[in-house]
Design a protein around this nucleic acid. Structure first.
Length: 565
RNA sequence: GCGCCCGUAGCUCAAUUGGAUAGAGCGUCUGGCUACGGACCAGGAGGUUGGGGGUUCGAGUCCCUCCGGGCGCACCA
């Protein structure tokens, strides 16, 4: 690892300047003319030492002993950067590492095997999942996966409200449709659920119980209808998520918090903090103590808790279950709840930074430059299933992941349906398939390829150096994406790496420049380039795997009819 | 009105968390190609990073302010 060697060499010199190797940040400069690796340590130190940055840089460069680091040259550039140029053998040495680690390349132990819970989707079972849930499902799953790749033990959890007002409204909506279906004149509740799926549930109810609830207005009957509807809709959500390749370790029911007395327990604990008071017949929590805009009611005049109380109890429960790091993925329309939950959790004495939130913004879908708005079945919006049945799961997942969560997402259906390199998903998948096709053409078993050739320094072409340097950055990219909980960082990396791989591949067009082809006659070159192709294939495949997207060995273009169906 | 998020090429978005000449894709323009998989390739043009001020060796990034957009501001969830 040249980074470590350079870092060590720098460390030796820096001791005399009151700094250490830990202060050094080595980066790949954007501009290749600035070398292969670069550090700003002299700039950082200059202020502290009250000296000119370039002078400090010159001094460090003069004293560096880089004999063992595979460095060809060091130069001082710009305001005081130290730029290192590596020998091509050193640059190519990453291939050994990649081929050896194979499916493990990119993994790290940063998380130390500690436990983290990622809670996401958490939609109430009042209807089909829509696009916002889709973004959250893809995003949450990718974040969970990134944490796994960086050494965390991840628990995926889904929380849902199976009681309360919305559920009651759902039950009454289903009851109305059910009675209409049986020929009785009954209208939907004023803010009832209007989507066609409600009638579908009602149809199932008729098949199940016949006319049993036709005239029964009792609370018990309504309760049974609610349970029936929840069962049907939960099953549908499970199918939608499972077909979207998103799976949970645990489904947590809000009602269980009440059944196990956790809500009452939380009230008691909060009271003991002295931050609880009575006003206007209700019970309030001083959330302003923790930066909320106003205090919040936790128990209404009626004696019933507001929703925010079980939320706090739930987060106490997560902690007590041993999850001392929790990531909540939510739509940014819920950001108001965040401050309240955090206040409640702080009041209970849980530490700063627990839980963490990733808030994502809304999704719009466009076709031919026009926004797609309506789904008759869902009553409003577009359902997740409608989307991925049209564009495919790989494309849908990738599109949801490729943008930073806290910006609005424009889902461009025309690009999503395109099957050329214009579509970033196919661009990456196709680069992967291309590498696989080279192995097939060469008649080699990719799994048997080894990087241990001592002749890797033949990979000296600009496109090869560029590609090699990108491959080396894969583990750091995973780290960065995981640390910032931003899958789009990985998407960006994969697109650029696929682009670099494509450029390399195309430069070796056998008709025009056969000497640059992977499968050249020269056996040393051929073997080194096959190793490079293999490394590219491994990195692209691992990256796609993190995102939950297939890395097929060959792509078969769908026909127009198949796309339409 | 208050709070959170966002504002970067014609469009959709990046920018290694304060680094060097702000990068990709789409679109556009100009060339090229009998193919290690044509689901093409190479290259060009395109920018006062919403405006203004500040912090420092250095700002798209941090601070202040103004403008514009999204979301949230219940004893609803």
């Amino acid at each position: 690892m040249p980074q470590e060697a350079i870092r060590a060499a720098l460390g030796a010199v820096l001791e005399g300047l009151g700094a250490s190797a830990d202060d050094v940040r080595l980066e790949r400069p954007r501009d290749p003319s600035h070398g292969d690796l670069s550090t700003n340590i002299a700039l950082a130190l200059a202020g502290r030492l009250h000296r000119k940055p370039r002078e400090v840089a010159e001094e460090i460069a003069g004293r560096l002993d880089l004999a063992a680091a595979g460095v060809e040259s060091v130069e001082v550039a710009g305001p005081g950067f130290l730029n290192f140029r590596l020998s091509s053998g050193t640059v190519a040495s990453v291939l050994d590492e990649i081929l050896r680690a194979n499916a493990g390349y990119g993994r790290s132990e940063t998380g130390g095997g500690h436990t983290v819970m990622v809670e996401f989707v958490s939609a109430n079972p009042t209807g089909p999942l829509h696009l916002g849930h889709g973004r959250q499902a893809a995003l949450g799953d990718a974040i969970a996966s990134l944490l796994e790749w960086t050494g965390w033990k991840v628990h995926r959890e889904y929380y849902y409200n199976d009681a309360g007002r919305q559920m009651d409204l759902l039950a009454r909506s289903v009851r109305a449709r059910y009675r209409q279906r049986l020929g009785r004149d009954e209208s939907l509740p004023p803010d009832g659920y209007r989507g066609d799926y409600v009638a579908e549930v009602a149809e199932d109810l008729v098949a199940e119980v016949g006319e049993q609830f036709l005239k029964d207005d009792s609370g018990d009957a309504l309760d049974q209808i609610r349970k029936f509807a929840v069962r049907i809709l939960r099953a549908e959500q499970d199918r939608d998520l499972s077909d979207f390749r998103v799976h949970f370790d645990e489904y947590f029911l809000e009602s269980s918090l009440y059944e196990e007395g956790l809500v009452d327990g939380t009230v008691e604990q909060l009271r003991s903090t002295g931050l609880v008071y009575e006003k206007d017949g209700a019970t309030w929590l001083k959330t302003t103590e923790f930066g909320d805009q106003k205090d919040r009611v936790m128990i209404r005049t009626s004696g019933l808790p507001t929703y925010f109380l079980p939320d706090v109890a739930y987060h106490k429960n997560k902690w007590d279950r041993g999850f001392h790091r929790v990531v909540n993925v939510q739509g940014s329309d819920h950001h108001g709840t965040m401050a309240r939950v955090l206040s409640g959790v702080r009041a209970l004495g849980l530490p700063e930074g627990y839980p963490q939130y990733v808030l994502h913004q809304m999704v719009r879908v466009e076709r031919d430059g026009q926004e797609v708005k309506f789904s008759k079945r869902a009553g409003s919006g577009v359902t997740l299933r409608e989307l991925y049945e049209e564009v495919g799961v790989d494309v849908a997942r990738y599109f949801f992941q490729m943008r930073k969560p806290d910006a609005q997402l424009l889902f461009d259906l025309d690009m999503a349906l395109d099957q050329s390199d214009k579509n970033p998903v196919y661009k990456v998948q196709y680069a992967h398939a291309r590498m696989c096709s080279i192995f097939a053409k060469a008649g080699v078993n990719a799994e048997k390829l080894e990087g241990g050739s001592s002749d890797l320094d033949v990979l000296g072409a600009d496109l090869e150096r560029d590609l090699l340097k990108r491959l080396r950055e894969f583990p750091a990219t995973i780290e960065r994406a995981a640390a910032s909980m931003s899958p789009h960082v990985l998407c960006d990396y994969l697109e650029q790496t696929a682009g670099a791989a494509n450029a390399w591949y195309h430069s070796g067009n056998p008709t025009r420049s056969p000497e640059l082809a992977v499968l050249v006659d020269d056996s040393v070159l051929r073997s080194a380039r096959l190793s490079l192709a293999r490394a590219v294939q491994i990195v692209l495949r691992n990256g796609l795997t993190v995102l939950g997207i297939d890395a097929p060995q060959r792509l078969v273009r769908a026909t127009t009819e198949a796309v339409a169906s």
